[in-house]
């Protein structure tokens, strides 16, 4: 009689985000567990690859005039803008960290652009990027005059996470940048008061980075012990 040897089930894994960097092919179709014998046979949806490429012109939906106006208003356009992505009806400009303040100034002040409101400053951790610039700060600007939005994305590496602060241009970014610092460790140079805002002041580590554990405890319920969410077996 053979005793089954415990092995990690193929296809199913604990599913912690650090195991799945964005460029991993997660299978075709809507359902699909890579590496297992999934025979559901459904492969109708062709999943698009993550866009690491520029969207070619024309962008459509009025985004051409936005980019042209920015090019006119900001002379150092070519060195500041790394990529322009138009996806799902939204325009994203990938900007080099050094130029972010000037680009924001141009976007806010120029007559054809007039992005008066900085709606949101968010941080994203793209762990596993080939060029190592994993920490992204994402600025969402809203133009009340022209009723449109634009997204600016800035990428820095974790060992040198310095981005100039845009509080000079948009004072509303004050607390939002503090949150990005607290959660991701992005240091905003020139910020009036860059301290932790959500975690206790003496907390160590940056909780929302992908390699920071979720930090749960195993829970016992009716005699069974269930591991915390980041260590459970899951179907991905």
């Amino acid at each position: 009689m053979t005793v089954p040897i415990p092995t990690t089930p193929t296809g199913a894994s604990s599913g912690a985000p650090a195991e799945h960097p964005p460029s991993s092919p997660a299978g075709r179709g809507m359902f699909g567990v890579a590496g297992s014998g999934d025979t559901s046979g459904f492969g109708g949806l062709e999943r698009r690859r993550p866009t690491a490429l520029d969207t070619p012109r024309p962008y459509g939906e009025g985004f051409d005039e936005v980019v042209d106006a920015l090019e006119a208003a900001y002379p150092a356009f070519d060195e500041a803008i790394e990529r322009v992505v138009v996806d799902r009806g939204e325009l994203t400009l990938h900007i080099r960290p050094e130029h972010i303040v000037e680009v924001c100034q141009a976007l806010r002040d120029d007559e054809a652009l007039r992005y008066e409101l900085c709606s949101s400053v968010s941080g994203v951790d793209y762990l596993g990027q080939p060029d190592g610039r994993r920490l992204h700060a994402v600025y969402e600007l809203t133009s009340m005059t022209y009723r449109r939005r634009v997204r600016l994305e800035v990428a820095v590496a974790a060992d040198e996470p310095h981005i100039p602060s845009v509080t000079r241009v948009y004072p509303t970014a004050d607390w939002q940048e503090r949150e990005a610092y607290d959660m991701f460790g992005i240091v905003f140079d020139g910020h009036p008061n860059l301290t932790r805002i959500l975690m206790p002041d003496d907390w160590e580590g940056f909780p929302q980075r992908k390699d920071y554990p979720l930090g749960g405890v195993p829970v016992e319920y009716k005699g069974v012990e269930i591991p915390p969410p980041d260590q459970r077996r899951s179907y991905q």
Partner: peptide, 18 residues
């Protein structure tokens, strides 16, 4: 079964909805 255990997949990208 698939929806409850695995869930559906969402094509990659980012959006902002206000």
């Amino acid at each position: 079964f698939k929806l409850v255990t695995e869930g559906f997949r969402v094509p990659p990208g980012q959006v902002y909805v206000g």
